[in-house]
Design a protein around this nucleic acid. Structure first.
Length: 588
RNA sequence: UGCCCGAUGGUGUAAGGGUAGCACAGCAGUUUUUGGUACUGCUAGUCCAGGUUCGAAUCCUGGUCGGGUAACCA
């Protein structure tokens, strides 16, 4: 891979740091140490994929390392099940972390020791105020906060109280440890932020060992410091926390002969996608409300959803790479993610023929050459983008299915498909001409009667006529032999939301407005389709994640869903093919 | 209201005082046994007002617009 990626502002910082020797010997590129620090309280979504690709990708690019570290400082909402799903998602995306998986909870002892140091140096105090009191005295954007009456408590008393907090001697919410910074700071984060709160909750890793738990701001920089992180990358909403990130480390280091490591936090814009909701809260609402079947519903923008939908890690990485890294809060057209997926699958997916909406076709002159029940095996190319994929035999006989949309009794201009008196090519088989239709009592066409031209075997043009003219057809259709077709379930997915910004409340709506009103009622259609037999080819590519993916010709990309059994396969539509005919007809 | 951050075609993203480029979308065409793929061409942009400079997307000042921010969440 030699493709030149643009040098975004974070790389710029890294390049400068390498040149100046900020983190080691000048010129040493391997100094780059990053981390991906998810809280195990939900499933990862495509926005996290951006953060993952950035931090892991940068480390790989510079020959440094990236840690996978769970920020598990709030036992009331974190679960081991989320830990496992996140680990699986990061692996699936194709990244390797340095050493063991890490946890903030590994460092609880160290965090506590540093907190005690802060108390000893007079930079932290135990506050007996209630949460309500603390909130009320924090001030407003225009008005400064006021000091807690406990702010100037004696160091020994603070030490004693903090020890009792740790020992479990106080009920939840009764006291906190606060940093003594500045209640008048224009930055709320510096108005004596809470460092520790009392929580008698069972932690997924430390059990009942602790009855106090560190807050994010206290824990995060210290985790980074302990792990020797150089570039701590996070999203924009933490920008205003950076002064506090720095303050904590500086406070610990003040008067210390051997200062602890001080990483650099840098913020970038999170990913936003059109027609997509990317907040854990709203995604959870869909799961719990039953609007989707779970976190891994193929319509969900979660990593597990895209995986089940048939997206590839390559596609997601490529997409994330091309949207770039900036501090501008942008919205990416979800079509670009779909395009990235098409691009990879076009190169890699073996082709099959599958009729989603079958219409019966009888080849009325099939018996003329002999037995009308005869079956011919046609040679179909597995992947026109990859010669090494070879060909496969596909049976062709007197009765076939084609796509209902590929026939029109009264076709408009520029319709290249079948109509009465029209001739088309059946891909890799024969040219056929429709001479009659059969209708049911309601007048609906239920069968096409066609003749085939034996001189077009394989789909080739027939030899020129006496005047040297070659007959041509404009359309090529996919088909399956009725006698051999497999009945399969196919799930056709469309966008989950029908508006571009589904989370944006319209101006004329009240506070009770629900983003779920923007749900697309047609986001899932299930059809019974006709698939060519022997669709699991021996020469098919082995996908790294074990998911089988195909292109159904002229339809799109599909993968085998985990609901499948050997007897009854289920396919998910990953993405449609681009369809300029559909686009042209929609415009009219 | 305060503080922090940002602004380049429709959407993203480059250009680090010297020709505003690339991708996606759109439009037109070529090729094609997928109305797919590939390829070619076209359309279209520096938020506004001042200032510095021979020269500003870039530096400075002011404004406008957008985002973030007042959990014992992360």
């Amino acid at each position: 891979m030699t493709d030149e990626k643009p040098v975004h502002f974070i790389k710029q910082i890294i390049e400068d740091d390498i040149a100046s020797g900020r983190w080691g010997e000048p010129g040493d590129r391997s100094i780059v140490r990053t981390r991906f620090p998810p809280e195990p309280n939900g499933f990862l979504h495509i926005g996290h994929a951006k953060a993952i690709c950035l931090s892991f990708g940068l480390a790989a690019e510079y020959g440094g390392t990236c840690n996978l570290r769970f920020d598990d400082t709030n036992p009331t909402r974190e679960e081991d099940a989320y830990v496992r799903s996140i680990i699986g998602d990061v692996k699936w995306l194709g990244f390797e972390w340095d050493g063991e998986v890490k946890y903030a909870s590994d460092y609880f002892g160290q965090f506590h020791a540093w907190a005690v140091e802060l108390i000893e140096t007079g930079k932290a105090y135990v506050d007996d105020q209630t949460p309500e009191q603390i909130r009320a005295t924090r001030g407003t954007p225009t008005a400064p906060g006021t000091n807690s009456p406990f702010r100037d408590r004696a160091i020994d008393e603070n030490l004693d109280l903090f020890a009792k907090m740790k020992a479990g001697g106080f009920p939840d919410g009764s006291r906190v440890l606060r940093a003594k910074i500045d209640m008048k700071s224009p930055n709320f984060n510096l108005r004596d932020p809470v460092i520790y709160r009392i929580l008698h909750a069972r932690h997924h890793r430390t059990g009942a060992d602790w009855s106090i738990y560190p807050m994010y701001d206290w824990a995060h920089g210290l985790e980074d410091s302990i792990e020797g992180i150089t570039h701590s990358l996070c999203t924009l909403e933490f920008e205003i926390h950076r002064p506090l990130y720095d303050w904590f480390i500086d406070a610990i280091n003040e008067g210390r002969s051997e200062p602890i490591h001080h990483p650099q936090q840098t913020e970038f814009a999170r990913l936003n996608l059109t027609y997509t909701v990317l907040s854990k809260r709203r995604l959870l609402e869909l799961v719990e409300g039953g609007q989707v079947t779970g976190w891994d519903d193929p319509r969900m923008p979660t990593i597990s959803g895209y995986r089940r939908r048939g997206y590839t890690p390559e596609a997601i990485r490529s997409f994330v790479g091309e949207v770039g890294i900036t501090k501008f809060d942008s919205v990416i057209d979800v079509g670009r993610l779909e395009n990235a997926c098409r691009e990879h699958l076009n190169r890699a997916a073996p082709r099959r023929m599958c009729v989603l909406n079958p219409l019966r076709v009888t080849i009325t002159n099939w018996g003329e050459g002999g037995d009308e029940n005869r079956v011919e095996m046609m040679d179909a190319v597995n992947n026109p983008e990859d010669d090494s994929a070879g060909t496969r035999p596909v049976p062709f006989g007197r009765t076939l299915y084609i796509e209902r949309e590929d026939f029109m009794e009264d076709p408009p201009r520029k319709f290249f498909r079948l109509g009465i008196g029209r001739e088309v090519r059946l891909r890799y088989a024969y040219w056929v001409k429709c001479h009659d239709v059969v209708k049911d009592e309601r007048g609906e066409v239920i069968e096409l009667l066609c003749t085939y031209d034996p001189a077009t075997r394989g789909g080739d043009s027939p030899p020129p006529d006496a005047q040297g003219k070659v007959r041509k057809v404009k359309g090529t259709l996919h088909w399956v032999s009725a006698a051999h077709a497999l009945d399969v379930e196919v799930r056709l997915f469309d966008r989950l939301f029908s508006v571009e910004s589904p989370a944006r409340k319209p101006k004329d709506e009240g506070d009770d407005w629900d983003f779920k009103t923007n749900l697309n009622p047609g986001s899932l259609t299930v059809v019974q389709a006709k698939l060519e037999p022997n669709w699991r080819g021996e020469s098919d590519p082995k996908w790294a994640d074990g998911i089988e993916r195909f292109q159904f010709e002229r339809q799109g990309y599909f993968c085998v869903d985990c609901d499948s059994s050997d007897q009854s396969p289920v396919f998910n539509r990953t993405a449609t093919l681009r369809d300029s005919w559909a686009r042209a007809t929609n415009k009219r």
